[in-house]
């Protein structure tokens, strides 16, 4: 079978182990186009691992995962799964933007070079065109003055905003955020969340692993609570946050809220 054409992300029984430790124990999840899904849960619950499975940074051991109707990392032919070649995996990833907890900007390139690198090198966009678009994107995240700065000349919040611009430069259909504000000083969290809020309002499909309950409540269309490798509870963020049904959700929220 192929993935439901209507869903941007569709996971069925996704499992993943590292050695003998099973980190994901059968995840089912659906993300509609334009939807913002926030994933919360205690550390070690598998939420980051699940996010990394969506763009095949981690290989899944069982289950199926589709992005925009295409199986991630595999091709199904004659009832058998075939691993995709590196080149094909890379092509799939072009449509999926990812923002990391530790920013992972390229330190030997300026902000603009970071943003321009993939469109020019991977998509073959003309350099002048990519630069114009890069400056536009950096202005959009409020860094029009900082295009020629190296990452180590930027604050954490500024670096994370460059990282968001870098991911957007590939014009992805889906954006994955892996705890984008967890490594930031508290006073810098707001500027990054503001950019993400603007992105959500522009209609981007987003999966956000986060500890920012306020963001999840105000921006998220749905909230997923994961614990110990399974989805414990999912639904409308306001409902889940104010009236959690499952005792594990209740216990977690009572600690963080």
């Amino acid at each position: 079978m192929t993935g439901d054409g209507a869903a941007m992300v569709r996971a069925e029984g996704v499992r993943k182990s590292f050695g003998h430790v099973e980190v994901l124990k059968g995840i089912d999840l659906e993300v509609a186009p334009g939807e913002v899904v926030c994933v919360i849960g205690p550390s070690g619950s598998g939420k980051s691992t699940f996010l990394r499975c969506i763009n095949h940074l981690e290989k899944i051991d069982a289950g199926r995962l589709w992005v925009d109707g295409h199986l991630v990392g595999y091709r199904e032919r004659g009832g058998k799964l075939h691993e995709l070649r590196d080149r094909e995996v890379a092509a799939q990833r072009r449509d999926i933007g990812m923002v990391f907890q530790r920013f992972n900007l390229f330190p030997h390139m300026t902000a603009l070079e970071n943003v321009v690198e993939a469109p020019v090198g991977v998509k073959g966009v003309r350099r002048e065109e990519a630069r114009a678009r890069g400056v536009e994107l950096l202005e959009r995240v409020g860094l029009g003055e900082r295009v020629h700065n190296y990452p180590n000349q930027l604050s954490g919040g500024q670096q994370q905003r460059v990282a968001i611009a870098r991911a957007l430069a590939m014009e992805p259909k889906l954006m994955l955020f892996d705890e984008p504000t967890s490594a930031l000083d508290p006073e810098l969290v707001g500027e990054v969340l503001d950019v993400m809020r603007g992105l959500a309002e522009s209609g981007m499909t987003m999966v956000v692993v986060t500890h920012e309950m306020g963001f999840a409540r105000e921006v998220g269309d749905s909230l997923v609570f994961m614990d110990d490798g399974v989805v414990v509870e999912a639904g409308d963020p306001r409902r889940v946050l104010t009236d959690p049904q499952h005792p594990r959700t209740q216990a977690f929220l009572s600690k963080v809220l």
Binding site: I96, M98, F100, M170
Partner: peptide, 22 residues
């Protein structure tokens, strides 16, 4: 930092390009 190669892969860069450019 392995995160550098990961970020490059997430942007759709091939292994060779990641090694050369990043």
């Amino acid at each position: 930092d392995p995160g550098q190669a990961e970020a490059a892969h997430a942007l759709g860069m091939s292994r060779g390009r990641t090694m050369r450019r990043i």
